[in-house]
Design a protein around this nucleic acid. Sequence first.
DNA 1: CTTATCAATGAAAGTGATTTCCGATAGCAA
DNA 2: TTGCTATCGGAAATCACTTTCATTGATAAG
Lengths: 143, 143
Amino acid sequence: MKQAKKQLFHDFIARKGLKSTRQRDLILDGFLSNDRHMSIEELYLALRAKHPNIGYATVYRTLKLFSESGIAREIQFGDGQTRFEHVDEGEHHDHLVCTRCGAVKEFANEAIEKLQAAIAESHGYLVHTHKLELYGICPKCRK
Amino acid sequence: MKQAKKQLFHDFIARKGLKSTRQRDLILDGFLSNDRHMSIEELYLALRAKHPNIGYATVYRTLKLFSESGIAREIQFGDGQTRFEHVDEGEHHDHLVCTRCGAVKEFANEAIEKLQAAIAESHGYLVHTHKLELYGICPKCRK
DNA sequence: CTTATCAATGAAAGTGATTTCCGATAGCAA
DNA sequence: TTGCTATCGGAAATCACTTTCATTGATAAG
Ligand SMILES: [Mn+2]
Ligand SMILES: [Mn+2]
Ligand SMILES: [Zn+2]
Ligand SMILES: [Zn+2]
């Protein structure tokens, strides 16, 4: 699955006539082997620990490429940091976010998805994305 | 209803020992008589047209006060601008946002709200807010 | 109706998170 | 191996707020 994403990204690189570079591979490895909801800075610092002179701008640009290639998606939990999560082919989920510790729980609910589609339909909108986030306190933080 | 909100805000001002100023009244009027989902800058520019030396910082601070007082709520549609919408006592709604022209349609769906509560419950989260936004193309933009 | 007091205001400076610029590097086609 | 450019990394620039500070003005006291 990690291999599949590497493959997808390499195909994307080739298709677009972009170059395969050491940095892109490092960043891809870092992204794929870390938490599913990392901010640019978190990934940058993690990579920086092993590769002292990788640039923030390169991490930033490469994450954008991951989004374009379809292996990542930008998310925004309202804490001022843009985060990126892994995208699995044909899968969709929404988020439960702990406002105390930042923990993120993913969930999928077919009934809600259907209701959303019906609402969009009834208002004549052609929906291409949606965002459903529940903010609260996680079980751990509730003690 | 517009009067009710003015009253609520004046009560808030009094309760907090804040001052009633010409600017706060102007901004309140501007906010109440405009679109329900304005960014700080949009409101600032609209006010500025009639009152050339009102400050951006004042609009900003006053909108925060509106939120505190309960007559407004901050929302974030992911376009990088914070928006403020009117709050009606005891009412809740979510949004359909046109990614072409920016049109916003409000909707409320009790079934979805119940499903959300059930999901939070099943994961042990104590939810205090949520965000549900459907992004797509509005009927007008679909032509 | 003054005056004194201190919150409120507006212009400008400061922040934090990107986003872009630019001279130096390094893939990769020839 | 070479030469052409895409990429890189560090720095500068942007953007959307957010705070600072000298001045102004709402209000309570006299
Ligand atoms: Mn996720
Ligand atoms: Mn609304
Ligand atoms: Zn938590
Ligand atoms: Zn539209």
